[in-house]
Design a protein around this nucleic acid. Structure first.
Lengths: 336, 336
DNA sequence: ACACAACTTGGAAATGTTTCCAGTAAACTG
DNA sequence: CAGTTTACTGGAAACATTTCCAAGTTGTGT
């Protein structure tokens, strides 16, 4: 039983134009009328037909989101932020997995694309790796999120600063300093990853604090719990306690926690750990972590794009987000 | 410069109805006329407006594809098969990452969904894990691919038989038998995976051949090269050659190849390996592998769904695909 | 040559919105 | 109180297709 704007108009005792204006939040509708129309829509369970809207409006009201669709918390939250905000502006979103230039281009070159989306949000830290000139081969407006790009509006996190936060929190403690970074799996080689930046910031801040990090105290694992545990064991079994470890991702920090438990080491006293991402289970596990406002970043990216689609045509804008440290048991003496 | 069907009609000297019929491959168009229209479309670079089509047709001509969008060859090929076939039937596809029930439902319950897609293709081996009754909460037609489900049309591979093929190929050789399985990462716990089935088939066929596989000779790793290498090393360093290894995935077999090279073992003589999936680089590396016709499976699933969308309303249909063994250097004596 | 069926075709109607143009009513203005 | 903005609103036109009906053309059988 599909309803039309026409039927809503009749029920509410107004014209179709008015119903349309209510749908699109035009200010020029008397509040009283607006309410009456909304009541009618609600009562009838009216859902507007997006296709008709696209035909009449001459736009697709759809945004393409290109990102690495792996099941990590990070991308889920980013997606939430994006979708929620786009929805608020009555935009739909279509998801495209970021798996290789070939696939992206097949999509970009699809002749129907012009009708299918009005703009693109791309989550990538290094577009230059795929396109040396740093530009997507498209004429649609583009917004980069979780990365910086001079050609486009960009929303990014200061990962380096996140590493510094970790360093500041750890540098006051006794004991050796360690860092565990993360490298991408085969096929996905990027020039410099967010993980590298985090470690760099950590290093630099420690240096400044007069406690330089030994090169041999930095290891790198693939994004995977098993590997994290191996790296953690390596450190914990060959060092005298106490020890302070900065992991470039919460998953890796989790590996440290588990190995510490296995070796009967007391977290917070023998072993102090800081992760990155503030994953939901970090709170449960009492893991200190560098939090990034991922949803807000997604929302910001969406706003930038909607702005472009509404006609804004200025120079590329940059929005930088700062991480903050969430301190938990893993960096506090139990007695504190 | 967006063109309409009207302009094409004028240029070709026919009516709009005829152009529409050409677009939709109606048989009732004289070949000569069809050609003239197609020539006109080509010359003008005409691209039909999908939105208008959806409004006039009262359908979305769009299919939702729900799958685990990790960057594996398997899913890429599956996607190719699906998209290509859907495109041939003038259907669009929208991709939804299979990351948790919550997300799927948010999508299924979206009120605009009714307009956004006509049917669903879901790639999952075990829908029952998410929905105990084995049914998606939707009234749209559903097709399952890479898995079996009694409620819906299903396209699946006989993974068990793949394991048997590997067993048959290896059972003739001297030496110990080993198998390496794969387990899913945290958060994605499935009752029984395709990997389990492959190993089961392998075991059963070996048993039948009178060379039962020792329980201690089966190991399990996470889907990751580093871990595969560790498991491979474990086997290769503690066994007398020759040894025969069935890996439930090519990536794992690759780990075996690399460890063998590191230990200066001759593949095909000291170490015989069979993988699963027939990944592109398996050919390069001379890896014997169990091939699955993934693209064809995707195509079959698409055909089943299109059939439903065209009105077919019979009982759920099952399409079983059989893997085949591709023998390469890793299971041949160099001299052969 | 005629009747009738089968094949093609043109074009109007229909699809469900948005947008624009008037027009009415209400609110100022002097 | 007349004149003029201003605030709302109704409804026709436009958007680009598909579909259906009527009509024209061609072919077949007798």
């Amino acid at each position: 039983m599909k309803l039309t704007i026409q039927e809503v108009a009749e029920k509410a005792g107004v014209g179709v134009g008015t119903v349309s204006r209510v749908l699109n939040n035009h200010k020029s509708v008397r509040p009283e009328t607006r309410e009456r129309v909304q009541a009618a829509m609600f009562e009838m369970g009216f859902v507007p037909n997006p296709h008709a809207r696209r035909v009449a409006g001459g736009k697709s009201y759809t945004v393409s989101i290109i990102l690495q669709v792996i099941g990590t918390e990070f991308y889920l939250r980013l997606l939430n932020g994006l979708e929620k905000t786009l929805e608020a502006h009555r935009y739909d979103s279509a998801l495209f997995p970021l798996i290789g230039r070939e696939r992206i281009e097949r999509y970009l070159n699809s002749s129907t694309l012009a009708y299918q989306s009005d703009g693109i949000v791309m989550a990538t830290h290094n577009l230059g790796e795929l396109y040396p000139d740093g530009k997507l081969p498209t004429r649609q407006p583009v917004v980069i999120v979780d990365g910086m790009n001079l050609n486009y509006d960009s929303v990014y996190l200061d990962n380096r600063f996140g590493g510094e936060l970790a360093a500041r929190a750890l540098s006051g403690f006794d004991g050796q300093m360690y860092a565990i970074s993360v490298h991408q799996d085969i096929d996905e080689v990027f020039a410099k990853t967010v993980f590298d930046e985090r470690i760099e910031g950590f290093k630099a801040a420690l240096e400044e604090a007069g406690k330089p990090l030994l090169e041999s105290h930095v290891s790198t694992v693939s994004f995977n719990l098993d590997n994290a545990r191996i790296a953690a064991r390596e450190i914990l079994e060959n060092t005298t306690m106490p020890v302070n470890i900065f992991a470039a991702a919460d998953l890796v920090a989790l590996g440290v926690l588990e190995e510490a438990a296995r070796l009967n080491l007391e977290v917070g006293r023998d072993v102090r750990v800081i992760g990155f991402d503030d994953h939901p289970w970090s709170a449960e596990r009492g893991l200190t972590s560098v939090h990034q406002p991922v949803e807000a970043m997604g929302a910001a990216a969406a706003e930038l794009l909607v702005d472009r689609l509404s006609g804004y045509d200025g120079a590329p804008r940059k929005v930088r987000f700062e991480p903050r440290l969430v301190e938990r048991a893993s960096t506090l003496h139990p007695g504190d």
